[in-house]
Design a protein around this nucleic acid. Sequence first.
DNA 1: TTTATTTACGCAATCGTTCCCGGTAAATAC
DNA 2: GTATTTACCGGGAACGATTGCGTAAATAAA
Lengths: 340, 340
Amino acid sequence: MKFEAVTIKHIAMELGLSTSTVSRALRDSHEISQATKKIVLDHAQKVGFKPNRIAQSLKERKSLSIGVIVCEIANSFFSQVINGIDSVAYEHGYNVIIAQSMESAERELMNLEYLTSSSIDGLIISVSTETKNFSYLKKLHERGLPIVFVDRVIDDIETHKVIADNYRGAYKATKHLIERGYKKIGILSNNSGLSISQERLEGYRDALKDANIPLRENMITYCDHGGMIYSEIESAMKMLLKQRVKPDAIFAGSDKITTGCLRFMKQKNIRTPQDLALIGFSNTDLTELLNPPLSVIKQPAFEMGQASASLLLSLIESKKPQNKFETRIQSTELLIRKST
Amino acid sequence: MKFEAVTIKHIAMELGLSTSTVSRALRDSHEISQATKKIVLDHAQKVGFKPNRIAQSLKERKSLSIGVIVCEIANSFFSQVINGIDSVAYEHGYNVIIAQSMESAERELMNLEYLTSSSIDGLIISVSTETKNFSYLKKLHERGLPIVFVDRVIDDIETHKVIADNYRGAYKATKHLIERGYKKIGILSNNSGLSISQERLEGYRDALKDANIPLRENMITYCDHGGMIYSEIESAMKMLLKQRVKPDAIFAGSDKITTGCLRFMKQKNIRTPQDLALIGFSNTDLTELLNPPLSVIKQPAFEMGQASASLLLSLIESKKPQNKFETRIQSTELLIRKST
DNA sequence: TTTATTTACGCAATCGTTCCCGGTAAATAC
DNA sequence: GTATTTACCGGGAACGATTGCGTAAATAAA
């Protein structure tokens, strides 16, 4: 099935003009008389002419579309980020092409190759938990592809980055637990390779230190797939709970891990917060409706998406290569509810 | 900033061949000798040649990308649908370009114009609650743009449609409430213009009829923006509760309405299910963790996305214009929990 | 009246691929 | 030894829009 569109050539033929005149008239060039412009514009309107963006892209050597790679769309945090990206991109006439890595480095690489086959002007990416080899990304960056990292960043690559204040978020959450009297705080961290994990762990560590609570290494567990697989949360929790000194509170390192943790506790009939308190990073707007209403650290996901899109667009539209890059750190919000 | 890519022309120059030979070698044409093919392929591999999709699109007159318009990405149902679409599209080498209507007919139209300016090969759309005028969509369809409707369909336009079994879902939910002893069942329907609303309302009506419970028209309320605005849920609930015959159960017509309803009940200290039972359509995977765990009708969102994508691709890739269209009705799942 | 300048438009190249036509050599058939 | 086929490759025209350059006519300046 073909969708036959009206082209500039058709208009030129029908009006007995050249394609250049039509093109210029449509772009309101000063080289075309008002009379001709009117004729062209009216006719274009009548036949419903829409410039072919593909042809424009080829000519202008840009596609007016940006690629976005996240681990999963159906994740409240990332869907909000995408929402923010979309809002800014749309205003500037850019398309947003979305791809999901599903936390797989292999799928991420495939998406990367796919998106960059000359069809995107820039990339916003939040790397997968599995990603250890950044060489392809680095090569793309060196070859001049504008890239902005959001949430999960890579230190090695110098470009704009947009993150939540993970350190302070984790610090505040841990401090809050301590103030509530919890001293044995277990942590279910995301994959240890991720920037967010390291920052959040650091906030946790410092909050304990500042409260003079000794850090127990066996209170720290990792969910290598970011909670994508429920069993890893299960085994992390089991590990924490079978120790001689059991935790009295849990700090969860991501959206999926937080809700997964609650699911585990419910299954095992562990009461919250009486038996075990729970706080975690989360961006679902349902947390206050949960049982118990969950204390969470909420990230400004929508704003992060907006920021990364506008940074990317500035990169794309700047004439000369940039070398001054910024890392935007957006503050998190601590919402205290019944679970702590 | 430009991102200089290797072209077929570069390879031709460096190898002392013509562009046609290189192109044919890369496409494994029988007109090229094995030796030449190997030389070209090796060199292309070495310099990291990626065909320019924009140029291919222009030449082949197709963009290998499909447009998706939903009301909101950050909605569990639609993000799952998109996930399904993405999975199929990706396998077939298609890009997915996503746009959000935010339940606004105006934004929907803008998205439509934008996506169809020759840059998409087909469209998957779930119309907004506000959409009353389908003429633009119809015109596009008549001009040959392959379109598949998902979830919220338009009867007037004959093409493939993918929906959940809204009628049976609503019927089962209502029947379940009746079996539990609830007889005064209020309904918070989505916008009355939507196909899903009508189908769900019909299921509700028939279930009451089959149980010989008289239908009270004042038990039916509408949320015109699909729960996008919390206040409409609030006023609908207030309306239901101030009647002389108050409902003893609520059936909510969409994801946002269901959780909004629970939010309202929590705010007003209405106990569920003692004071008021609640069941609704919802696709969040958190419903069992809510307080109380929510009984819901769950739609096969991911599968619906997959189905609509494969139907669209079949439409796109069929040589001749189709005139046999199917409406795929996928069954819903009734999950009974504590709220009823 | 002659020359310079402006106005308004057409020609043709370009972006990167693909593909229809050829063309030339070697290989085979007659 | 000629005719025909086969294998292999290049030239060049598309796809649709943009734009530098050239040029006729119209106007202004000399």
